[in-house]
């Protein structure tokens, strides 16, 4: 039982696929020589593109069988609405808008709507409104004037035919105007303005880089320290694994290699609060020694650390670090790039 149902379902799927290909091949056949193209644009109700649509090889063998099947009338252009479709129909009739036969137009319009229905295209409400207007016009023409129902409030002079024609003419004019705009648009793509380079008579000053105050740095390091507020047990006492002089070396090594680094990078690998403090003290020390410069290119931006410009004067008399460091740092006054003797820095310890 179950197997049968599965087989039947599978058969149905295959049948549907075949039907789909047949329809596709028909459509393709009809449009082989016809340039039915469409652009993918917003606001279109339906669009077909057959130009690149090639039927799969096995379907070609079906083609003769297909030709005998019910004829498909595919001659879709892209219509942007009922007025557009009406204009197209009028153009096909090759008559002036003013002289168009609205009753015949109504018939053709409704044929198109039926066609759309065959394709399972969603018919927009505007098309149905237009269809009903056309039907109304057509029905009015079948009645002598004195038997026509006068709609209350409608003026004597208001002829629905005239209303429609007026709307069509107006729409046509704007459609033409749109075409002219399109020409202008295409033309603009080929027009190039003369853009002379900037005349430089003065040496352009580098953009100002506002310096960073000690408070900015403290704020920044506070942000980093937030990471460690909960993690550490305050009760225990650890031996100090980090010393400022070591960190000075690390910072200088990185910066001399790269030229600059971001503030946050300094602390990316910091594992503990004491390490952050230590790194920060090293940074402050290097700034004090005018080895490094901190700047903030934009407000609330990342603080940037760079090597200072060639020092105008080497700090001759290093003061003992006033910061609450556990180990005051031996200033690397003469030769900062070279390793600072660790023993020296430790010997200064309290």
């Amino acid at each position: 039982m179950g197997i049968f149902r599965k087989l039947r379902n599978a058969g149905r799927v295959i049948l549907e696929m075949v039907n789909f290909y047949i329809a596709l091949a028909q459509v393709w056949q009809k449009n082989q020589n016809r340039a039915v193209t469409s652009q993918k644009t917003s606001g279109q109700y339906f669009s077909f593109s057959f130009r690149h649509c090639k039927p799969p090889a096995p379907v070609l063998e079906f083609s003769q069988f297909i030709q005998r099947m019910a004829e498909y009338k595919v001659q879709f252009e892209v219509f942007e609405g009922p007025l557009d479709l009406l204009l197209y129909l009028i153009k096909k009739e090759e008559v002036d808008i003013y002289e168009v036969n609205l009753t015949r137009l109504a018939t053709q319009f409704i044929e198109y709507i039926d066609l759309m229905r065959q394709f399972d295209l969603e018919i927009a409400g505007e098309f149905l409104v237009m269809a009903s207007t056309l039907m109304y016009i057509k029905s009015r023409e079948l009645l002598p004037v004195d038997q026509q129902v006068q709609v209350e409030g409608e003026e004597e002079g208001e002829d629905p035919r005239w209303e429609l024609i007026r709307q069509l003419v107006e729409y046509k004019k704007f459609k033409d105007a749109a075409a002219r705009l399109q020409v202008l648009e295409a033309e603009q793509e080929n027009i190039f303005p003369r853009l002379p380079g900037k005349l430089e008579f003065e040496s352009a000053a580098p953009p100002p880089r506002p310096d960073v105050s000690i408070f900015d740095l403290l704020n920044a390091v506070n942000g980093v320290l937030q990471r460690f507020t909960r993690r550490e047990d305050q009760g225990d006492i650890f031996e100090d694994k980090w010393i400022v002089s070591e960190k000075i070396e690390v910072i200088l090594r990185v910066i001399s290699g790269r030229g600059s680094m971001r503030f946050a990078e300094l602390f990316e690998r910091a594992a503990s609060r004491s390490e952050v403090v230590c790194t920060f003290l090293a940074l402050l020390e290097l700034i004090r020694l005018r080895q490094l410069v901190c700047s903030q290119p934009e407000a609330f931006g990342e603080i940037e650390i760079r090597l200072a410009a060639p020092p105008a004067e080497t700090p001759a008399t290093p003061e003992p670090a006033a910061a609450p460091a556990s180990e005051p740092v031996a200033a690397a006054e003469t030769n900062p790039q070279s390793a600072i003797p660790k023993s020296q820095s430790e010997s200064h310890g309290t």
Binding site: K175, L181, Q182, A186
Partner: peptide, 14 residues
């Protein structure tokens, strides 16, 4: 330049 305007857009713009 941004892509060219579609025909409906040009009509509306007109």
């Amino acid at each position: 330049r941004p892509p060219r305007l579609s025909l409906p857009a040009l009509e509306t713009l007109a």
